[in-house]
Simulated scan of single mutants.
Amino acid sequence: MEWLSYVLLLLCPLMMIFCMKGHMGGHKHHESHSSTDLSKKMMNLESDNEQLRKEIDALSTLVKKES
């Protein structure tokens, strides 16, 4: 029965190693977000925002003309 406690004692750090290895593997996938990639996304969002502002202005002038 003493061997069971040793097995459980050794099993805990081994499981921790495998879990940490799994977490590190997942972070490598997210490292693809470089600053240039984020800059491109930011520029796209800014241009979309500008386009939406223009559409809102056009719609609000249309509503004012109809009133």
Results as ranks from 00 to 15, higher is better:
1 M>G: 02
1 M>N: 07
1 M>R: 10
1 M>F: 04
2 E>A: 10
2 E>F: 08
2 E>N: 10
3 W>G: 05
3 W>P: 01
4 L>T: 14
4 L>I: 14
4 L>Y: 10
5 S>F: 03
5 S>T: 15
5 S>K: 15
5 S>E: 15
6 Y>M: 06
6 Y>V: 00
7 V>T: 08
7 V>H: 08
8 L>K: 13
8 L>E: 07
8 L>S: 06
8 L>P: 00
8 L>W: 01
9 L>Q: 09
9 L>I: 08
9 L>K: 07
9 L>A: 13
9 L>M: 13
10 L>S: 14
10 L>Q: 11
10 L>M: 15
11 L>F: 01
11 L>W: 01
12 C>Q: 09
12 C>M: 12
12 C>E: 03
13 P>V: 04
13 P>D: 10
13 P>F: 03
14 L>K: 02
14 L>V: 14
14 L>E: 03
14 L>T: 14
15 M>D: 05
15 M>W: 08
15 M>N: 12
16 M>A: 15
16 M>D: 09
16 M>Y: 12
16 M>K: 11
16 M>N: 11
16 M>C: 06
18 F>V: 01
18 F>Y: 11
18 F>S: 07
19 C>N: 11
20 M>S: 08
20 M>Q: 09
20 M>V: 12
21 K>A: 13
22 G>H: 11
22 G>F: 09
22 G>T: 03
22 G>N: 10
22 G>L: 12
23 H>A: 06
23 H>D: 05
23 H>N: 09
23 H>C: 08
23 H>W: 12
23 H>I: 08
23 H>Y: 13
24 M>V: 08
24 M>I: 09
24 M>A: 13
25 G>E: 15
25 G>P: 00
25 G>I: 06
26 G>K: 10
26 G>D: 05
26 G>T: 01
26 G>P: 00
26 G>I: 02
26 G>C: 12
27 H>Y: 10
27 H>E: 14
28 K>H: 09
28 K>D: 15
28 K>Y: 01
28 K>V: 03
28 K>Q: 04
29 H>E: 12
30 H>P: 00
31 E>R: 05
31 E>S: 08
31 E>K: 07
31 E>Y: 02
31 E>W: 03
32 S>L: 02
32 S>F: 01
32 S>H: 05
33 H>K: 09
33 H>I: 00
34 S>L: 05
34 S>Q: 06
34 S>P: 00
34 S>W: 01
35 S>T: 06
35 S>M: 07
35 S>G: 04
35 S>R: 06
35 S>E: 14
36 T>A: 04
36 T>W: 00
36 T>Q: 04
37 D>M: 11
37 D>Q: 05
38 L>S: 14
38 L>D: 09
38 L>G: 08
39 S>N: 12
39 S>C: 06
